[in-house]
Design a protein around this nucleic acid. Structure first.
Ligand SMILES: [Mn+2]
Ligand SMILES: [Mn+2]
Ligand SMILES: [Mn+2]
Ligand SMILES: [Mn+2]
Lengths: 249, 249
DNA sequence: ACAAATAATTAGCCTAATCAAATATAATAG
DNA sequence: CTATTATATTTGATTAGGCTAATTATTTGT
C-alpha cells in the first residue's frame, strides 16, 4: 500500500490527461498510411523511405522517424533499409481514409459544383476530420457511389478493397473502342484532358500509334457528333485507364 | 482572402522551411479566439484566463501561454492580470470561424439528417478545415441562410456581426405570445427541449410564474392543435431567446 | 491594514511533427 | 575485394500545444 505518485487510478475520470494515447491514429499518420497504400498498390512497387518522402514532400529523416512510430503502433512491417508493408490494421486505416477522400470528392463535385481538378486538395484535408456518422450519412445522400469524379473506386463500408481491373489506354488495341474508367492525373493536366472530352464513361479508341511516342485517339464525348480526334503523348495514355465498352463485348 | 484554410501558402516555392509563419492562425488559435468572442458577447462579461480555461477544458497555464502568443500576433489586447479583448483582426478571425460553424451545422441538419443536438460536435471540428471556396459554395447551396438550427445568427460573407436583439423567455410578459428565436443549450437539454416542442419559429407564451423559480409555459408547436403546456425551471427559460410574433406587433 | 483566499503567471517537462547535419549501410563499379 | 555512391538512419534542434508544481499578484474578510 505504497503512496504511488503515478497511480493510473480508474476513479480519476476527470480526463485532463496528457498521455500518449497508444491507439490513436493522428491525421499525419493517416496520410503516411494512405501514401504507403497507394505506392504499394496503385503504382505497384516496393515502398522505400525516399518514395514516401517524395510523395509527402517531407525529408527522409522525417519519414524514418514516423515509420518507427507506425511500426511500434503495429501499423506497418519494417526492417531497416528495406521497403515497408502495411499490416492488416494499417491497411484498414488507409482504406478508411481513401474511402473518406473519394466520397468527399464525389460530394464536392456533385453538390458544390467543384471542377474535377479542384476536388483533390479539399478532400485531402477533410478526409481526416469527418466522423463515421458524417461519412455514413454522406454515403446515403450520394446513394452509395462506387467511384469518384476521377473514376477511382470507393471502398465500401466494410472497406472491401477495390479490385476491379482496367487496362491502360496506351495498351489498348488500335481500332477497338473502349470506355474511359479512370483518369489518373491532377491540376492542369486534368483540366486539359477534360477539355479534350476525356472523362469517365466516354468511349475512346486508338486511331494510330506514331513512332514518336505519341498516340492519336478518337473521343466520342457526344454520341450524336463526330468523334473528336486528339494526339496525346504515350505517357498521358498510360494514365488513362479503360475497360470494355458495355455492349461491345 | 485566399482559398486555402490553414495551409502555409506555397507561393514561397523554396519553402521546405520549418519556420514559424507569423501570420498563420492555427486551428487551436481559432478556437481560443472564438471562445473569447463568445465569452465577450454571448454571455456578456469580462474574459478572464480561467473562464477561457473552463470553456476549452485546458489548464490556466496553457491559456496564459496561448494568450501571450495571440498578443504577439496582434489578435488580442492584454495586460497582466486583466481580462483580454479581441483586436479587430482577432474578432474577424472569430467571426469567420463562427460563420463556418453555423453554416456547417445548417448543412448537417438540412442535408445529412443530423439531430439538432448532434450538429455541434461535428461542426466544431470541421469549422477549421473548410476552405473559403467550400464555404462559399455551401452558402449558395443552402441559399444564404441567416440562422443555424439553434437559431444562432450566421454572419454574412463580409462578417457583419450579428446584432439582432432578443429577450429571454424568462423575462417575457406573461400572457403574451412570443416566437422562439434561439435555444442556447446542448446535448440532453437540447433534446429534451425539442421533445417539448421548443424549436426556433414556434410560438410560446408564459402562462404563470411560480414562486419556486419555475415557469409554466404554453407551446404552440402545431397551429391546429391545442397548445402544449410545460413547466420549466427559470434557468432553462433564460436560455430560450424569443422575439415578437410576426403579426402580433 | 493585513492575512487568507483566489487567480494568473512562470518554470520546467512532455509529445507530435518537422528539419539539417552527421553517420551508417547497401549497392555498384573498378 | 575495395572504393565510391546512393540511401537510410541517428542526432540534435525547432515549433505548436499541452501538463504539473511553484510563485506572484489581486481581491476579500476581519
Ligand atoms: Mn490527407
Ligand atoms: Mn479521386
Ligand atoms: Mn472548433
Ligand atoms: Mn449553433
Amino acid at each position: 500500500m505504497t503512496t504511488e505518485p503515478n497511480t493510473p487510478d480508474a476513479a480519476e475520470s476527470s480526463r485532463s490527461e496528457h498521455v500518449p494515447d497508444s491507439d490513436t491514429v493522428t491525421p499525419v499518420m493517416e496520410d503516411y498510411l494512405k501514401t504507403i497504400y497507394e505506392l504499394q498498390y496503385d503504382r505497384d512497387g516496393a515502398v522505400w523511405t525516399s518514395r514516401i518522402a517524395d510523395s509527402l514532400e517531407v525529408t527522409p529523416p522525417t519519414v524514418s522517424s514516423m515509420l518507427e512510430k507506425l511500426e511500434r503502433r503495429g501499423l506497418i512491417h519494417r526492417e531497416k533499409h528495406r521497403p515497408v508493408t502495411l499490416t492488416e490494421t494499417g491497411e484498414n486505416v488507409a482504406l478508411g481514409v481513401i474511402r473518406n477522400h473519394r466520397l468527399l470528392e464525389t460530394f464536392l463535385a456533385d453538390y458544390l459544383e467543384y471542377e474535377w481538378d479542384e476536388v483533390h486538395a479539399e478532400a485531402d484535408r477533410l478526409e481526416h476530420y469527418v466522423s463515421d456518422q458524417f461519412v455514413d450519412r454522406l454515403t446515403a445522400m450520394l446513394e452509395h457511389p462506387s467511384s469518384d469524379p476521377h473514376g477511382d473506386p470507393i471502398p465500401d463500408e466494410a472497406l472491401a478493397a477495390p479490385t476491379r481491373s482496367w487496362i491502360r489506354l496506351s495498351e489498348a488495341e488500335a481500332g477497338v473502342s473502349h470506355r474511359v474508367e479512370r483518369v489518373r492525373a491532377d491540376g492542369e493536366r486534368l483540366r486539359y484532358l477534360a477539355d479534350c472530352g476525356i472523362t469517365p464513361g466516354v468511349p475512346v479508341e486508338i486511331v494510330e500509334r506514331t513512332p514518336l511516342e505519341s498516340v492519336e485517339i478518337a473521343i466520342e464525348s457526344d454520341p450524336d457528333h463526330e468523334p473528336n480526334s486528339q494526339v496525346l503523348p504515350k505517357r498521358a495514355c498510360e494514365r488513362i485507364l479503360v475497360g470494355p465498352l458495355p455492349g461491345n463485348n
